[in-house]
Write a protein that binds this DNA or RNA. Structure first.
Length: 263
DNA sequence: TTCCATGTTCCGCA
DNA sequence: TTGCGGAACATGGA
């Protein structure tokens, strides 16, 4: 379930379990999960090393290794996840890569649909520049002024811009819908017709939401019953205003919104 | 069987 | 140049 808050949770999970242990085994179960790098090279460069720290930018996870200029880059696609375990029976069904550690534990990168990616990169910063990724919305340096500037030069709908990783890195379909729901803004609203005040509301709601979802993921709590997330159904009652929840395709994605309070 | 799915990329068109 | 719709990728789950 990987948008920014989920990837943040994976990053913390990785850091809590899989750092500073010698990698004694690297099994690539399905090569389609790898990018350009060949399986042999991937295994060779990681075996005997260890993971040393994690870093996240948007939906991308980077893990530093004890090898110079060698970072594991993971993208979780639509169905990626991590699992750390000690016994083979606990291996996830769709484990695509399994790292075995000296202590006997293992870390699996699972991804049923294979839209994810695992590769090695020399530098996360260079990767972010190459891929033209926008700022991470939870970066302390990401400000309302920066957000406003990013939107100012653009046209198009607010949903399409929040979804575009070159503008802001990390939001996906679910949390864009939730952000706009909380902001009372219609997903199709042209961004050049947003008032300053509305941009501020989106900025604030988005960051508050992302932090809240991360906190909930951490303690295994569900989303509030009043959230759009729990009411993504055609003709559901909007828990905030009693209006009706509608479904439409916006920017190519199934979009839920309240036809009454989102304008 | 059919439709839908938390992502990304590429192509064609306006 | 920018933005958008559609298709493709792979594999379930309802």
């Amino acid at each position: 379930m990987p948008e920014l808050p989920e990837v943040e949770t994976y990053a913390r999970y990785f850091a809590a379990h899989a750092l500073d242990q010698k990698i004694v085994r690297v099994e690539v179960r399905d090569e389609r999960i790898l990018g350009e790098i060949r399986k042999v090279a991937f295994v060779k460069r990681l075996k005997g090393r260890s993971f040393t720290s994690v870093r996240r930018h948007g939906k991308h996870l980077f893990v530093a290794t004890s090898a110079k200029e060698t970072w594991l880059h993971l993208h979780f696609g639509m169905s990626g996840d991590l699992a750390y375990y000690r016994h083979v029976e606990q291996e996830p069904r769709f484990a695509r890569i399994v790292f075995g550690f000296a202590g006997g534990a293992q870390l699996a990168f699972e991804d049923m649909r294979l839209f994810g990616l695992a590769e090695l990169v020399a530098s996360p910063d260079a990767f972010i520049v190459d891929r033209k990724l926008g700022p991470d919305p939870l970066d302390p340096k990401f400000t309302l002024a920066r957000f406003t500037a990013l939107l100012e030069k653009r046209r198009g709908t607010i949903k399409s811009l929040l979804m575009s990783q070159e503008i802001i890195a990390g939001l996906g379909n679910l949390w864009v819908d939730e952000t706009l729901y909380l902001s009372s803004i219609h997903p199709r609203r042209p961004v050049d017709r947003l008032k300053k005040e509305e941009i501020r509301t989106i900025f604030t709601s988005m960051r508050k939401l992302l932090r809240d979802v991360i906190a909930r993921r951490e303690r295994g709590a569900a989303m509030p019953a009043r959230s759009l997330y729990e009411n993504r159904e055609i003709d559901a009652r909007c828990p905030r205003c009693g209006g009706s929840i509608r479904r439409a395709v916006v920017f190519g994605r199934t979009t839920y919104f309240c036809a009454t309070h989102q304008r």
